[in-house]
Design a binder for these strands. Structure first.
Lengths: 156, 156
DNA sequence: GGTAAAATCACCCTAAAGTATGAGCTAAAA
DNA sequence: TTTTAGCTCATACTTTAGGGTGATTTTACC
């Protein structure tokens, strides 16, 4: 209870005590330098400085530190990396699931032989699918097919 | 310049001026109440309170509020149409101007024969350039070259 | 002028891609 | 049941691409 009272009024009590001590000191000094008249300005000056400092100290105790929150928006460039297959285009062209698989691997730079291995079928099968894809895309060679398919959002 | 001086030392100047004014007031009051001896304690008390308040005011002025900067990233979509050639990559790979031209047309789906016609050179020249490009890109076929070049931002 | 790099061209050979034709199997739709 | 679409595979042939070797000309730099 008493501890509570002290904890809560600590600053005020300290302020009062220090004020009392200072007044006592000044009274004492008054008796020592009573002959010197201009000493008053010195007292006043000292008093002003001391209590200003005390005020500053009190301020830091009584006031909560202000926090200025500044929100800065930073633009981050995001490329259209998220490829989305154009299903409608695919259906419209009549390209089958398997045909698309072949096209995708073709675009990755795989040879027909490599694609065959990847999809566990024969080279002939890949050639067949390629031809079908070329037909549907109305192109003559793989580079053309890849270029067009990319443009039509069939491959990334 | 003078404005700058004022702006920067505003608090200090105000403090000095108010101190001078208060000292003048006390001197004036000293002449009015010189007969009453205990008035000194009143001065001191008033002085203490006033300068404490002044100290508090100063503290609020001198202490800068903390700035908490929060950076919010805002995504901005960039259309993939804005292709920018990676000149450094190009130079690093040692791909010549002519070689790049061939690569670009290759990516558009043109056959070697067609590219030769486009650039007014022989088919052999195109084959030579192709081989050089493949070598520098460390690939074996045009689809691979195109795929890699795209990834390295050499072609759109 | 000398040198190196880039561009151009030729020829030979092989590999890969692309075309044409045909066939078989399975699942789904008519 | 029949038809259709999709997938798989084969064979024969043609075209294109790719690798190798070498040479000449042009261009840029010292």
């Amino acid at each position: 209870m008493t501890l509570n009272f002290w904890a809560r009024n600590r600053s005020v009590i300290l302020y009062g005590v220090s004020l009392a001590i200072l007044l006592f000191l000044m009274k004492w000094l008054e008796w020592r330098f009573i002959i010197v008249d201009y000493a008053f300005e010195l007292y006043a000056g000292a008093l002003a400085v001391i209590f200003t400092a005390l005020g500053i100290w009190l301020a830091t105790k009584l006031t909560k530190p202000k926090t200025n929150t500044i929100i800065v928006e930073k633009e981050v460039m995001v490329t259209n990396g998220d490829f989305v297959l154009d299903e409608k285009q695919l259906a419209g062209l009549g390209i089958s699931k398997r045909e698309l698989e072949v096209l995708q691997l073709m675009a990755e730079g795989l040879s027909n032989h490599q694609i065959a291995g990847r999809l566990f079928v024969s080279l002939n099968t890949i050639k067949t699918h390629s031809s079908k894809v070329f037909e549907k895309l109305e192109v003559q060679r793989r580079t053309q097919a890849v270029d067009k398919a990319r443009r039509l959002n069939l491959i990334p």
